[in-house]
Design a binder for these strands. Structure first.
Lengths: 332, 332
DNA sequence: ATGAAAGCGCTAACAA
DNA sequence: TTGTTAGCGCTTTCAT
């Protein structure tokens, strides 16, 4: 069955394509009678206006792209959800893209955004710098980035102080459990991983504690990362009294390993994460962590993007800081 | 800065648009020298072929749509991931859509798929029947649906036996903990909720146990659902010895409530879920549940879809059953 | 090895 | 209130 086009509807209804077009867009008045007639014919024929033809003509796709490192990390669906909530009712649809934090994929999706002519991009990148997003701005695509530091750029960015949050978390652990604090760090080739490790080191140095390099193990930002890294920490001659993990998934993995080895959390060893993903509260022991207010981050990105999409704002990149917050629960 | 088109490249390179087009598509040989020249000019100008113009011309979008009830339920990102993994390397991109299990939204996204001329749809619907997907098939859009029962339809469907899995889970609880088994059911207007409740009832009846209607509480398929429903169960004069929950999120909420009321799980009250989302293993106590092999479900959907997209298969709807599996852990 | 030109399905300027 | 038509940026047939 060939696709029904606007022309088919027009001739079947005995009107011009212009009229059919305006029945749908409402961009100019159409006599009620004609309007209803056209509608009926269109429904009978099963006509659906082609979004791609329209996009080509109006040079808008009403689509935005959300580029994320890993959709199976619960942090990101919550974030994406926030973005979509902010966009709700404004007629935009979202393309969710997984980069797996692979540099080539991050770049590939930026290309893809360009080719698909999306109207806007929310970018959460780990490998690619903010300056690489300028190509989007050049193509008049609205861009908001999450998590990069505040430096003057073309794109808006919503950022968290990863160094400070890691530092405060570690300081809390030092105060509560003394100097022997280990760190399950993120990969050293991700900005987030690097900054949280930096915060950890700053906290120890600030307390006059020398960093024991054996007490820092770098793993992926996943539950498996925690499962893989924790045994190394526990195998050390002097077991750490607490471990600061670069995110909640790692922390949950770490807790699991500790408990399997018969250790009490936090009695024998305390564990703290970062993110406050939903399961952090559900888990048992519930996870002490640094809350990132993920949904708010998402809506904020969505709102900033919307301001550019609608033309409410058109100036240089704005930088918005979102404050973290330590959430004390059972694990530390 | 106006968008660079194929024409800009052609004139700057002193060739025809045809040649530029073929440099990109490789659909016909272009002299090496010309090819390199065109490439260089294109790069200099920052040319990106417009996917929307191409789509209009070739009547393909290389896009599929994944329609899901709730992306913040960890079951679905895992599933979506599976679909995307199956599609990887075949040049398709995925549009992830959240219906929130709202009937109107499910229908709206079907419309949207039609208008956007996506090549395929993976549909996970709770309110809308399989027959409503025929409109997609009519428009020559490949469709695979998850979770509906095997009845002859136009679309492919991957299904789970929700009744049987709920029944087996309940039977296990009866065998282990006796007749006093409650049920935190899903909403009665979702097929999944209905079928799991049905399985629960069949198990009790099969064991000659009368179903106590007070012991069945219907809640949303969320952690909050569990938090809301569990107190009602615990407030009953005779506390249930175990509770079968319609999914893992509900079960995790239920466990939380039980523990807050000072009950041991499973010592005082056992809890069992369905899905085996990742956190089921991480949680503490870890969750006894029915595994749905979510990633496999996703890849299966992706593969079936791919067969239709590539034309490898073009017949009537196929129905593929995926076996569930009870996973015994600590909570029951 | 390369080009000219039609046409994919719409929207909107211009005309009546 | 309605219609005619150019053109959005590509691909591909038909020529050369």
């Amino acid at each position: 069955m060939a696709r029904i086009t606007i022309e088919d509807v027009a001739s079947a209804a005995g009107v011009s394509v212009t009229t059919v077009s305006h029945v749908y867009s409402g961009h100019r008045p159409v006599k009620l009678q004609t309007r209803e007639h056209v509608r009926r014919i269109a429904t009978e024929l099963g006509y659906r206006p082609s979004a791609v033809a329209k996009s080509l003509r109006v040079q808008r796709t009403d689509t935005i792209m959300i580029i994320l490192p890993d959709i199976t990390n619960p942090f990101y669906p919550g974030f994406a959800r926030g973005v979509q909530d902010a966009l709700r009712g404004h007629g935009y649809h979202a393309l969710l893209c997984n980069t797996d934090a692979v540099e080539a994929d991050e770049r590939a999706f930026i290309e893809e955004a360009l080719e698909r002519r999306v109207d806007g991009v929310v970018f959460v990148g780990w490998r690619v710098g903010l300056d690489e997003l300028d190509v989007l701005t050049d193509a008049e695509i609205a861009v908001v980035s999450l998590g990069q530091p505040p430096e003057p750029t073309l794109v808006d960015s919503i950022w968290l102080d990863d160094v400070a949050s890691a530092r405060e978390a570690t300081e809390y652990l030092v105060q509560t459990y003394g100097p022997n604090i280990a760190h399950l760090a993120g990969p050293s080739d991700t900005p987030v991983g690097v900054k949280r490790e930096q915060g950890y080191r700053l906290a120890l140095e600030g307390a006059g504690i020398a960093v024991n390099e054996d007490a820092v193990v770098r793993v992926e930002f996943t539950h498996e990362g925690g499962l893989a890294g924790m045994p190394q920490l526990l195998a050390r001659s002097s077991r750490p009294r607490a471990v600061f993990c670069a995110n909640d998934l790692i922390a949950l993995g770490a807790i699991r390993v500790a408990r399997e080895q018969g250790l009490q959390v936090p009695g024998d060893i305390a564990v703290m994460g970062v993110d406050d993903i939903e399961v952090a509260a559900i888990a048992n022991p519930s996870l002490t962590t640094v809350r990132q207010r993920v949904h708010e981050l998402g809506t904020l990105c969505g709102e900033r993007l919307l301001e550019r999409l609608t033309g409410t704002y058109a100036g240089p990149g704005r930088s918005t800081f979102v404050q973290h917050e330590i959430v004390l629960r059972e694990s530390a």
